[in-house]
Amino acid sequence: MNYRRTFLQALLLFCGERNIDPQRITSLSGISLRELNTKTKFNLTNQQLENVWKNIVQLSGDELIGLHFGATMQIAALNTIGQIIQTSNTVKEALQHACSLVHLITDFYTIQIEEKTKTFTITFQKNDGFDNFPTARNQMGDFLITFTLYELKGLVLENPKPIKASLLTYKKIYDREYQNILKCSTKKNDNYSLEFKKDYLKTKIITANYEIQNLLIEQINKLQNPTSLNGGFSKKIFNFLIANSYLYSLSIESVAGNFNLSVRTLQRKLKEEGVSYLQIVEEVRKSLAIHYIQNSTSSIKEISSILGYAEPSGFVRAFKKWTGKTPSEYRHKYK
């Protein structure tokens, strides 16, 4: 599989969802969009990647777009994550395998895992020889740190929070956005890093999320654009959540940031269509819950955790409110 081609396709799709024209990005970057989408052996050079990231930052006006993209890349990375899950039993093993796979996506960084007495650190070490591609290297670093964090959330039935993070591109004016995305204190450093409690390395990973990821990617077109929502913007938010929030609960701040909007503007645009953000989140959970109960073999506990419920009992109550049946009763009915 050509992972760099898949990465660029996913990045352009992400930009399209933010109303940044992929055709314009590729044209300005000296890339044929038609060849990218039709040639499986498409070769992406580092200079082309530098041009792509420069144009995306300029057209979006978003210096943190690499961070935002990293938090929404799960579906495009399914094949890589599948390899990791199939060959790993614990978080430590999964990270060790991820270290050997990062070169499939980028030449700019090497991943290192350092264990200490009570903590461990994931460091994205800059590789030498790529100073001529500063924008691409910085944005790829931003992407990798959030991508890794959010993929870790998809490997276990919990929401791991870093103790602290370091960014090569750190700017104090973005402290609030760093907190929204990374959920920890952030500082500037020569490399990117995430530090966690050491006990997390021993955590068993689950296969249920990979089953659900595959199930979702196969059926995502059927789940998008629900008839229960009338407005175009509210459907866009719903589609974004369906595609990206099945592994964790996205805050309204994170969603607004991914659309390059303030929370107030997002709320106003939804209000104009007669719907609130919480109503859309509820509709997403309902759609995914019914879909997973009908089509997957995952346990009620696993599904409730993936959908963001702290306890299975809360999920069971919500499901019964939506359908009039408990998840177990509903699954038995549709077997």
Rank of each mutant, 00 (worst) to 15 (best):
Q213F: 12
V255E: 07
I181A: 03
S251I: 01
Q139I: 08
K54N: 13
D128G: 11
L266H: 10
Q9Y: 10
L144K: 01
A289N: 00
N295M: 00
S328D: 13
L144A: 09
L144P: 06
I212L: 14
E115H: 01
Q179C: 09
N214P: 06
S313P: 02
Q213G: 14
F42N: 07
E253R: 08
G141F: 03
I293C: 11
E302N: 09
N89R: 14
W53M: 08
S328E: 15
L28Y: 05
L250V: 08
T297H: 11
F238K: 02
Y150M: 09
A256N: 03
G16M: 12
F42K: 00
T203G: 03
I75W: 12
K222Q: 13
S245K: 02
D62I: 05
T90P: 08
N89S: 13
D107A: 05
K235M: 07
E282N: 14
Q139P: 09
S296W: 00
L261D: 10
G61Q: 03
L28M: 10
G66L: 01
N180S: 13
S299R: 00
Q48T: 01
R264Y: 12
R176K: 15
L95M: 13
K198W: 04
N189Y: 07
N191R: 04
L67S: 03
F42G: 03
T6P: 00
C99I: 06
K54C: 09
Y200R: 14
L49M: 13
N2M: 00
A289G: 10
V102Q: 12
Q86C: 10
I56M: 03
E93L: 13
E311T: 15
I56C: 05
G82C: 09
L216Q: 00
H103Q: 12
L36W: 07
T106Q: 03
S254E: 15
P226C: 03
S262D: 09
Q86F: 11
Q58S: 06
S304P: 07
Y3S: 12
H332W: 00
M1L: 07
L229Q: 04
A310L: 12
F315M: 05
T135Q: 10
R34Y: 14
Q48M: 10
K320H: 09
R4Y: 11
T40W: 10
S185R: 04
K116G: 06
N159M: 10
K153W: 12
F69T: 00
L67C: 08
L49A: 06
L49T: 05
M73V: 15
F124T: 02
N2T: 00
N138L: 11
I206D: 10
L155E: 03
A208T: 15
L307K: 02
V57Y: 00
A310E: 14
K161F: 07
L250N: 11
R268W: 11
K171N: 02
T148V: 13
I65V: 15
E311N: 15
L216V: 04
I122R: 01
I212S: 09
R18S: 14
L8Q: 06
N209T: 11
R317K: 09
L288M: 10
G70M: 09
E35G: 00
R5E: 06
